[in-house]
């Protein structure tokens, strides 16, 4: 393979380093090119340092580019409600690289497992998302505010006649700016909440969609189940409704008087939540993976409040109140039984 060797005499050494970086990036498997690169490195003592400096610059440019792209995206949403062409999920490159190093380190047998465990935002490619343990507040173009809980994702779609948000997975709290002409609609697996000016929270669980209202009025539509008509009801402030995805049944909950949802106050409030969902909710917050070994207890309903942010404390509480014993493996995996 013939390549232009970046050794133009007029170029300064750091320019040569940049050219080498790009050339090698283009053809990482070109052995003759690599040999020539080695020669260049040996030519001058400073060459290697310059090359590595370029590599560092390239890495920092990644972070900077992300910021440029995301601020361009914000601007685009602000001005016309459309999305920037170059949408780039924040963490994708990192995960891809992790996969790369896995193979580089010859742990090939585990790759299949890792793919299965990749965070969901990789296949949804949502407009906004958070990873495990991360929370975000996003100011939308119309002045509404969107609070994303850990491991959650939404798509935002605004037009002149409506504001539509899709909760792909996880949980979000919405503070809606008033607009008579553009209803604010949040859809979550068929459940649609429509608001004019209000604050409410939507949470997706394995078998349920829970909608809780803390201010204003909210109309909630549920998907058709067994030929019934589409059910719909209007929530008053402080009320919540759970929709069961399996049976289509609804249950009303009360006493959500505090404006902010519990997760914004770093608490996990549980009203008759199955233990399997409790574990799933905790897994959204902690980087350690919790696994419930006792399959018989999956359906056990739990009521109570768990403080988030301190895994040891959480585990202690689980142990005391539910007699769940935690065993930690490799600092990463927590087995509950």
């Amino acid at each position: 393979m013939k390549t232009n060797i970046p050794q133009n005499i007029n170029n300064t050494a750091h320019e040569q380093a940049q050219e080498w970086f790009i050339k090698l990036q283009a053809e990482p498997d070109n052995q003759p090119l690599l040999d020539q690169f080695k020669q260049w490195l040996e030519q001058e003592k400073e060459h290697e340092a310059l090359y590595l400096e370029t590599c560092l610059l390239w890495q920092d440019m990644g972070t900077a580019t992300e910021k440029v792209v995301s601020s361009a995206k914000e601007d685009a949403t602000k001005t016309q409600g459309s999305h920037c062409k170059l949408e780039t999920p924040k963490h994708v490159p990192k995960w891809f690289s992790k996969q790369r190093v896995l193979s580089a380190l010859s742990v090939t047998t585990l790759v299949a497992l890792v793919v299965a465990l990749l965070p969901p935002h990789l296949w949804y490619s949502p407009d906004y998302f958070t990873t495990v343990g991360e929370q975000q507040t996003i100011r939308l173009a119309d002045g509404s505010t969107l609070h994303l809980n850990s491991q959650s994702a939404v798509n935002v779609n605004y037009s002149d006649s409506f504001r539509s948000i899709e909760l792909l997975y996880g949980e979000a709290f919405f503070e809606v700016a008033k607009s008579k002409t553009q209803p604010f609609r949040v859809s979550s697996q068929g459940v649609i909440a429509t608001a004019v000016g209000t604050a409410f929270n939507v949470r997706q669980l394995e078998h349920e969609v829970q909608t809780t209202l803390t201010e204003g009025k909210l109309k909630v539509d549920f998907p058709r189940h067994n030929q019934e008509k589409i059910a719909s009801l209007t929530l008053e402030a402080g009320q919540g409704v759970s929709f069961s995805k399996d049976t289509g049944s609804l249950s009303l909950t009360k006493n959500h008087e505090l404006y902010l949802p519990d997760w914004k106050r770093h608490l996990l409030r549980l009203d008759d939540v199955p233990l399997s969902d409790v574990v799933a909710l905790l897994n959204r917050h902690y980087s350690q993976k919790l696994v419930l070994l006792d399959i018989d207890r999956r359906a056990e309903k739990i009521t109570g409040v768990i403080p988030l942010g301190d895994l040891d404390l959480t585990l202690k509480m689980l142990n005391k109140s539910l007699h769940l014993e935690a065993n930690t493996l490799f600092h990463r995996l927590v087995l509950l039984r």
Binding site: W20, L41, K98, R100, V101
Partner: peptide
């Protein structure tokens, strides 16, 4: 080390 392994030409670097 993930970052390191992504560096092109890393195999001939001597002082990483």
């Amino acid at each position: 080390f993930v970052r390191l392994s992504n560096i092109p030409g890393i195999e001939v670097i001597r002082q990483p």
